[in-house]
Design a protein around this nucleic acid. Structure first.
Lengths: 196, 196
DNA sequence: TGTTATACGGAGGCTGCCTCCGTTTTGCAA
DNA sequence: TTGCAAAACGGAGGCAGCCTCCGTATAACA
């Protein structure tokens, strides 16, 4: 799985070529920009053009559209995972969970175009994304576990399902201020989750 | 808006040609099948092929992809609206709302492929779909109004947002049994909405 | 500095989108 | 019934994106 992410020296004696690494980086940056702006209909050729490399180079580095999405998306997840750890250390359980879900919404807001592009992917090529979803899931799971231990929320709802619910709620046509709406809806949901 | 749905005699003195009506019907049936099965990536050419008409004929009847979606989708909404009326007449307010939302989920389940295809549309060509969404929204609004009047749920959440939340929750990759999951999540959400 | 593995880039084949227009069909009037 | 014009038909064709393949360029290593 990490074969593409971290070139393995053991396979070949040679070290990876400098231009290869450079192009890979250029492609990732270009992809992030293009997907963020253009959304689902963004063309891979546009990504290659923006990166200033040939379409062939793009396909060599990222053999499928999903592989490219995955690589770009990976970094975003990193940030969220880190935030979860920080919140868990700094806030009471329920608040930590709530604030982290709000952060998730804000992240979706920024990367909306890209996430829209990702949606079909979630349905299709699952194995590739499993790891990222899993990391994300574990972040919520930790936060939820703490809240459950503190007797703040019910314990019969799967973390993965909470993620699904929250991300799903972001999939609405965006009128100005939709983030606030979603935050409210998530708060209602959390209210249903809460033990009073 | 209904110009395409019901050919208006007033515009022209002639009555619509029989083959035109026939082809229109064939296209609608074909589109429903193709979108249900194939989802977002369904090609319009495939629809035309299945209907046994030329691609030009498809585009004349439905100048945009959205117009075609809209026509197909319209019938589905009809059913839901009708169901809402029946439930309102037959069940207590909260149960009626709950059961109707469950029906909505089931409907999405059946038409999943088609709805996936619709998602980008909701973002883009809004005017076309406004009417359908509005009819749907009004159905929930009625059910919610009854529940509010009965003191069963809080009154500060917009019906449209409830729709958004429920439909959003359906946008998850489908593992076997996802409908049950979503029904549970919606129940949690309703719990948050409830006044106890 | 030469050799070779490796990466580059874009041409090309394919498919889908949508338009345009010559041909066919149908409604209507005589 | 027949003839004609309005209306609908269907598919060719232009364009764009997807992905593959391979001749050329270049970086690593001896």
């Amino acid at each position: 799985m990490t074969g593409h992410l971290e070139p393995e020296k053991e396979t070949s004696s040679r070290k990876p070529r400098a231009d290869s690494l450079r192009n890979r980086e250029k492609l990732l940056v270009a992809a992030r920009d293009v997907f963020s702006a253009g959304g689902a209909e963004a063309s891979l050729e546009a990504v290659a053009r923006r990166a200033g490399v040939g379409i062939g180079t793009l396909y060599r580095h990222f053999p499928t559209r999903e592989a490219l999405f995955q690589a770009v998306y990976s970094r975003e997840i990193d940030q969220l995972v880190e935030l979860a750890a920080r919140l868990a250390a700094e806030e009471p359980p329920f608040d930590a969970l709530r604030h982290w879900l709000h952060a998730q919404i804000r992240m979706v807001a920024t990367k909306k175009g890209m996430l829209a592009a990702l949606n079909p992917v979630f349905d299709g090529a699952t194995e590739v994304f499993a790891a990222h979803q899993e990391r994300n899931r574990r972040a919520v799971a930790d936060l939820m576990a703490r809240a459950v231990a503190a007797g703040a929320i019910r314990d019969d709802i799967e973390p993965a399902d909470v993620m699904r619910a929250v991300i799903g709620m972001c999939y609405t046509r965006d009128q100005p201020g939709w983030q606030d709406t979603v935050i409210r809806l998530v708060d209602v949901f959390l209210d249903g989750l809460r033990i009073r």
